[in-house]
Amino acid sequence: MKTKNNILQDPYLYIFIIFLVYPFLPYIGKYRSVGTELLIWSIFALSFNLVLGYSGLPSFGHGAFFGVGTYAVALTLLHLTSKDVTISLILAAFFGGLFTFFYGFIIKKKRGIYFSLLTVAFSQILYVIGFRWDEVTGGETGITGLQRGGFLGIQINNPITYYYFVFVLFVITLLVIRKISNSPVGKVLLALKQDEKRAQYLGFNTERQVWFIFTISGIFAGLAGGLHGLLHLSAFSDTLHWTKSGDVVMATLLGGGLANFYGPIVGAIIFISAREILSSFWDNWLLLYGLAFVVIILFIPTGLLGIVERIREKKHFEQFNNNRNNIGSKNTQEIT
């Protein structure tokens, strides 16, 4: 489809500028770790949306691949090298991809309810390992007290350099995932979400497509998890628990990942900010967290940007309806 690439239709530049100047904004700029958290969750939600929004696969265990990345970073810093995080982050992405590659193969033919439940099951396997295997993962207490060191010789120890380090990785991720979503594969994914049988009879091996995109998603989820570990300098097994996967689903849905490429970023920004604010002064904030799911599903299932898409679609329909009436009765016979 040919669309004019103006800023309104592709808010990439806005997002870039907002995150670029964030640390210097009044009032909120000083919460650098929150800003970093937003960037990390945007990476995670964007990668997750390749599975949920593009392919229509209701994964509910993606938090596990995030967690795998966190542990990969924590363990390499602990046992391999604590001076440089390069290898750690590469391994975080690698293991995120390896686990999704392996598991994607097992569930590539499953859809709908089965897909959801099997992703939950896999996430739980990793959780039990993380929780019980004390001598490696630290079990219940997790791994703490890590050092961030440098990245290829660049010091990323202070919060602001780390913020910009994550920012660069965020921009790269955004560009790569945007590239994929505009590629033939991006179209194939959208197609198999709408009518998989049709896509198969056009000759697409949709199972393999699902398997591959699940893996790609896992690579970025692992990277996000690794960055998260570096931000908090720790790894805990509860990030692997299936209920934690609700977070990324929430972020993606809330922003409108089902309808718009940038939905996950919008959702991640709103969700993480709300979580940070609420959980800091209200013990029972989970009550609101739970109710938010209910409200989203009942009232805005396509998310915030989904509302924009719906208005756009209405215009689209009206436009062609007018065209039709102008052309005359050609091709307009409707069956009731």
């Binding site: 489809m1 505009n182 590629s183 033939p184 991006g186 179209k187 194939v188 091996n205």
Partner: peptide, 10 residues
């Protein structure tokens, strides 16, 4: 183009 992840469809 089934597995082309980087070409711009337009």
């Amino acid at each position: 183009y089934s597995y082309n992840y980087f070409a711009n469809i337009n």
